[in-house]
Amino acid sequence: MTATTPLIEARNLVRRYRTGATDVAALRGVSLTIMPGEFVAIVGASGSGKSTMLHLLGAVDAPDSGQVLLEGRDISQLSDADATRLRLLRIGLVFQRFYLMPTLSALENVELPMAEAGASTTVRRERAKSLLSFVGLGERTDHRPSQLSGGEQQRVAVARALANKPALLLADEPTGELDAATGAALIALLQQLNRDGLTCVLVTHDAALARSAQRVVTMRDGQIVSDERVAEPVA
């Protein structure tokens, strides 16, 4: 793959949901190209289709029409098993509510994707420890999510997303449940990862937060209404 090949490309994506008797078009023919190493923020009001977009990019959901190409390969029509495998190995997901397994320790939460990928106990334990140290939680590996603050939980979630060295990190409102200072620290962590070469896509409704990205894509009513580069991302 060369630098000119997009890491992920959405082509004319359409996605409808049925809510009761009404059909809601969440995406109405959206196209987007993201190059390797980019840090993109998708912004928009609630219901604009940004989370749906993230789910399609992450192979969590499939479009009704259109294509998603990851590293040149169409991932929009993958079988469930293939899509699962792809999420496990190539995509890291971070959610607004962290979604850590409440019954597992921080270390075990980070180990989980590696265990699923078949890594040996020694290998995954070492890597989980080093990832937790990287996100600043080297001392809290044995804590349960309920014993960690919101910011700490989200950092564990980031470490978990990085477990299998993904090509793409997708974050859905990662600071939504955090206070301003903790949220800023988390964004700094994502920027750090991006500087280290990881492609990041961030979904947020907070325009100010979006300015920490290099590129801001704005959505409204299931369509992209603007796609701008940020001259100087906020650090």
Binding site: G58, V60, D80, A81, T84, R85, L86, R87, L88, L89, I91, L93, F95, Y99, M101, L112, P113, E116, A117, R160, A161, N164
Partner: peptide
């Protein structure tokens, strides 16, 4: 979430 992060069916 487990499914989303790549745990198979």
């Amino acid at each position: 979430v487990l499914r989303a992060i790549g745990v198979a069916r």
